[in-house]
Computed example of a mutant assay.
Amino acid sequence: MQMADALLSTQALEAYYGDFQALFGISIDVFPGEVIAIIGANGAGKTTLMRSITGLIRNQPDMVLWNGEAIGSRRADQVAAAGIAMVPEGRQLFQSLSVEENLIIGGQMGRKGPWSLEKVFELFPILKERRNVPSTALSGGQQQMVAIGRALMSNPQILLFDEISLGLAPIIIKSIYEALPNIIGEGMSAIIVEQDIAKALSVSSRVYCLQEGRISLEGRPETLNRDDISAAYFGV
Rank of each mutant, 00 (worst) to 15 (best):
L127A: 10
K128Q: 15
K128G: 15
K128R: 15
K128P: 01
K128E: 13
E129K: 14
E129F: 08
E129N: 11
R130W: 01
R130T: 08
R130A: 10
R130D: 02
R131N: 00
R131K: 06
R131S: 08
N132Q: 11
N132F: 02
N132P: 01
N132D: 06
V133A: 13
V133R: 14
P134Y: 04
P134I: 04
P134Q: 04
P134V: 03
P134L: 10
S135L: 04
T136K: 04
T136R: 12
T136W: 00
L138C: 09
L138H: 05
S139F: 03
G140D: 00
G140A: 06
G140E: 00
G140W: 01
G141F: 02
G141K: 04
G141Y: 00
G141P: 01
G141H: 03
Q142G: 08
Q142D: 06
Q143G: 14
Q143T: 05
Q143L: 09
Q143E: 11
Q143K: 12
Q144Y: 03
Q144G: 07
Q144H: 07
Q144S: 08
Q144W: 04
M145Y: 08
M145N: 06
M145R: 12
V146R: 05
V146C: 07
V146K: 07
A147D: 02
A147F: 03
A147H: 04
A147Y: 00
I148F: 03
I148A: 01
G149T: 10
G149D: 11
G149V: 12
R150V: 02
R150A: 05
R150I: 03
L152E: 02
M153S: 11
M153I: 13
S154E: 01
S154A: 15
S154P: 07
S154L: 05
N155L: 12
N155Q: 09
P156G: 13
P156I: 07
P156W: 03
P156F: 03
P156C: 13
Q157A: 13
Q157D: 13
I158S: 00
L160T: 12
F161R: 09
F161V: 10
F161E: 05
F161L: 14
F161G: 06
D162A: 11
D162L: 15
D162N: 11
D162M: 10
E163N: 12
I164F: 10
I164D: 00
I164K: 04
S165F: 05
S165T: 14
L166H: 10
L166E: 14
G167I: 13
G167T: 09
G167L: 11
L168K: 10
L168Q: 09
L168S: 08
A169V: 08
A169C: 09
A169I: 05
P170G: 10
P170D: 00
I171M: 13
I171T: 14
I171A: 14
I172W: 01
K174Y: 12
S175C: 06
S175R: 15
I176D: 01
I176V: 12
I176H: 00
Y177E: 07
Y177K: 08
Y177V: 03
Y177T: 05
A179K: 15
A179C: 11
A179H: 13
A179M: 14
L180F: 15
L180H: 04
L180G: 06
P181L: 07
P181E: 08
N182F: 14
N182W: 13
N182H: 15
I183A: 07
I184H: 00
I184W: 01
I184V: 15
I184C: 05
I184N: 04
G185D: 00
G185E: 00
G185N: 02
